[in-house]
Design a protein around this nucleic acid. Structure first.
Lengths: 70, 70
DNA sequence: CCTTTTTGTAAAGCAAGCTTTCCATTTGTG
DNA sequence: CACAAATGGAAAGCTTGCTTTACAAAAAGG
């Protein structure tokens, strides 16, 4: 799973801290998502999409990860 | 999070076992999702959506769960 | 430069997603 | 009815998502 989180966040001029607060998660969670340390839960993905006024599919890219990605 | 999984699955005439196999999860996972015991990971949500040729948003309904739903 | 703001990242711990195994109940169908 | 197919669901165990705490580095702005 790839995502355009950092790109979209910066385009909207908000920092990790603000985004985290708005989404009710920690700054570390946002950083971890942006740097691909793990994927968001579907609930968090929905919150992110709603925050940016976009669909989940526009932000998170599922590309048939060659083989076994959980 | 609510979902229309059972409804959509039946409409397409596939049973839990077949769907589970196609998605590379167990039948119990499908049953648990249909009966709301837990939410899918975002990866599984993408697989489900792709399997049915729909968007995640058409299958999973995030309705601002009154208060703290993870 | 110097200070503040923002970001990266790691470790430990808890909660949620998923598997495996197993059994019970329901729903066909002959 | 009898038997098979499909579904419900529980318990234990492993993995992943997220938090908390903490520190370092980078970036931004005087």
């Amino acid at each position: 799973m790839k995502n355009r989180l950092e790109e979209i966040r910066k385009k909207q001029g908000v920092n990790q801290e603000e985004l985290a607060t708005a989404l009710e998660v920690t700054r570390q969670t946002i950083g971890s998502l942006e740097n691909g340390r793990y994927n968001p839960s579907i609930i968090l993905a929905f919150k992110i999409a709603r925050y940016f006024g976009m669909s989940i599919e526009e932000i998170f890219i599922y590309e048939e990860e060659t083989n076994n990605e959980k």
